[in-house]
Design a protein around this nucleic acid. Sequence first.
DNA 1: TTTAATCGGCACTAGTTTAGTGCTCTTTTC
DNA 2: GAAAAGAGCACTAAACTAGTGCCGATTAAA
Lengths: 158, 158
Amino acid sequence: MLRLTKRTEYGLIALVHMAELAAARPAEAEAEVISARAIGDIFPVPKRMLAEALKHLQQGGILESTRGVRGGYRLSRSADQISLGEIVSALEGPPTLTSCAGLGAASADGGCEVEPVCPIRSPLARLRTGIWTLFEGVTLQALADRSADPTGLFSATG
Amino acid sequence: MLRLTKRTEYGLIALVHMAELAAARPAEAEAEVISARAIGDIFPVPKRMLAEALKHLQQGGILESTRGVRGGYRLSRSADQISLGEIVSALEGPPTLTSCAGLGAASADGGCEVEPVCPIRSPLARLRTGIWTLFEGVTLQALADRSADPTGLFSATG
DNA sequence: TTTAATCGGCACTAGTTTAGTGCTCTTTTC
DNA sequence: GAAAAGAGCACTAAACTAGTGCCGATTAAA
Ligand code: SF4
Ligand code: SF4
């Protein structure tokens, strides 16, 4: 029912934390890496799940990883260059809203029977685009700035 | 992953169909009832699931039901007075986005451990409001009018 | 060179949710 | 009274989610 997974929440928590760390540092300084363990020590989340989320974020190109001792993760870009859409997409795939989101493959893998006569497919696809636009418009920077309105819907700053 | 349930889709299909029926009728005429069976004969959806969806819509005050032979359902209001938010809310509950949506009860039933230090709760709550606003702004009328943009985001008609 | 920290990948279990069905009861028209 | 229709309850199977285990690869440090 329109809910993010826990993995996504954990990933977001880590990202916001990293964004806050970056904000407390001079802009010129290269961001230092922080290990999954370190993040897990700060927030009471299952460390292993957190690591899973971070891995996905690395695969999605949002985090860069360094292995070995003293290794860890860091943001691949500045926080205002990372959209929530990217993050969610990396962690749990793009939002589908309907079952027939991957429209091309839907008919191939015996998708929805209703599709040929479905009266809601097209409108919902547009609505999905609207939601997606909302997600794309929210930056990690905005999420980390707790006092701000991340959606830009209720303030004039959008 | 941000997907509507099948029950919701079936309910929406039925509602859009009813809205289209209503649109093809003079505004003064009282809407006639249509049975779950009749709708199920038109769209290739599991009839039983469809009935389940219609039941929920009746309980949510979106549909009025008439029992007995010649019975069925009809919209309780005109299609432009019914928002997608209401519909989704009736069919699968309000969107939560995070696990700590029912914030009051969350701490009581041993909710999320992260809550006291969660850096994403408040921003995501606002984002949820944004999504909800989007859903509230889409009327059944707009959904049924297939050529229109239901979100009002991409046209000047919003 | 050994050790330990760290990321990376695969697989697995248990719980929850979703999709769908079955059956019975009540209401209402014919 | 028979048949059509909604209302309620309960149930099963499949899918997804949350969380864990294990081990290999990489790298800085001792
Ligand atoms: S075709 Fe219609 S019913 Fe089928 S998955 Fe798409 S939106 Fe849902
Ligand atoms: S408190 Fe934070 S981590 Fe916990 S459910 Fe809410 S948003 Fe998710």
